[in-house]
Write a protein that binds this DNA or RNA. Structure first.
Ligand SMILES: [Mn+2]
Ligand SMILES: [Mn+2]
Ligand SMILES: [Mn+2]
Ligand SMILES: [Mn+2]
Lengths: 223, 223
DNA sequence: CCTATAATTTAGGCATGCCTAAATTAGTTT
DNA sequence: AAACTAATTTAGGCATGCCTAAATTATAGG
């Protein structure tokens, strides 16, 4: 069995690999809130375990085995988030922190029981996809809200889950995955978004909008 | 916050203190499956934190603070066992191992939510009392089954929870907390117990009987 | 091509928590 | 009272995983 720290590194490498392409020591260290020297040390350990590919100064990549473990931990995390949310009523801005600790500790049996209880779900409370038991993830085609234009309609697909205050803020607007809204106006010069959610007019700052990803984008009906 | 290891030591000292009286380094080390030298090291650390009283060669005792932490962890453990059992259907011989890891990791919020879900329970699936949120435990007056005499009736109050195979064995006889039975015969020379559970006649070895504690003992009706 | 800068790695340290082996102490036996 | 035995403590080591500071390497600009 891997240590919690090693699992966190694999999970982080996976996520960074998805976003950008190459995962440098510095990026990884920053993401994990650790010094670069520490990241180098762990990367070397993971390499001897054949969980990553690594050449010094060249960045790090997951091997098939490393990727499988990363997905397993991510599955734990997201199932836990949804379970805590649905079964125990933990608010959506609290589940991430909780799952961050639990993900390393639950058994395969408990994982399977939560999965069954939840009806084999495919997304967590923030809209992130839950890898299935074989490590298969469905890639979503969502785009950042900041790419939207005046008049377009869409549905929230996913929001960043690691900032509790941001989640509370989004919650105050009812901006959950599944919520539909229409862009009324995008203010020029990197300005805020004015949107219509179920008749309510709401202003969303650009920094916040960066963390909201949307789906099913439709252009305005021509009048 | 304390480390998992420190929490386990406090919990173990508490339990050993309850059973016998004085907790020696050796007893503690054996209980934790660790070498005596390791126990000495941790005991010293706990002493500097004022969680235990300790004079070398004289054994260790919890301070009020140490006891409060021990009870908090035990509360986590037992609430988790019952929650896993009732909410997720984890079998009673599996909950202990699972709770052993989770107890160090759940938040006070999740603890409170499980407590509410379970209706503020007072005993875990093995009959052990769950300390309340203020660290108050109700001492049970149960006695070991090995103290029973021919003809006596009683109700199972508690069983040891740390041996999975033993629990499965007890389960096969329906010997759960709350189950009533009557002693038909105690074989002489440290022999086995023949008992009657709901009309079924069952033979229980002495080694097994040592791990079963009973309540509401009634002498045989005089004919 | 050579050098400056920024990223990365190496070297050395510290805290935890375990271990083995050797030294010490308590308690019992003669 | 001295000696033995068993428990306990001390000393020294090892693995993790983090840190800081110093050395190295890549890369881009002159
Ligand atoms: Mn799993
Ligand atoms: Mn999430
Ligand atoms: Mn608690
Ligand atoms: Mn129990």
């Amino acid at each position: 069995m891997l240590t919690h720290a090693a699992e966190d590194y694999l999970k982080s490498i996976y996520k960074l690999q998805e976003k950008g392409g190459k995962v440098s020591t510095g990026i990884l260290a920053e993401y994990l809130e650790v010094k670069p020297a520490s990241a180098t040390g762990m990367i070397k350990k993971l390499k001897t375990m054949k969980l990553v590919r690594y050449e010094r100064y060249r960045g790090v990549t997951l091997t098939a085995t490393g990727r499988a473990i990363a997905l397993e931990i991510i599955r734990h995390h997201r199932l836990l988030e949804l379970y805590l949310f649905k079964a125990l009523g933990v608010p959506w801005d609290g589940v991430h922190e909780e799952a961050e600790k639990l993900e390393h500790v639950i058994s395969e049996d408990v994982e399977a029981r939560m999965d069954e209880f939840l009806g084999y779900p495919t997304a967590d409370p923030h809209g992130a996809p839950i890898p299935d038991k074989n490590g298969v993830v469905v890639k979503t085609a969502s785009i950042p809200m900041t790419d939207l234009q005046d008049g377009q309609s869409c549905v929230v697909a996913e929001v960043s889950d690691n900032d509790s205050a941001l989640l509370r803020h989004l919650g105050s607007f009812n901006l959950y995955p599944g919520t539909a809204f229409r862009v009324i106006e995008v203010a020029p010069f990197e300005g805020p978004f004015t949107i219509d959610i179920a008749g309510q007019q709401v202003v969303i700052g650009r920094e916040v909008a960066k963390h909201v990803f949307v789906d099913q984008v439709q252009d305005p009906d021509n009048v």
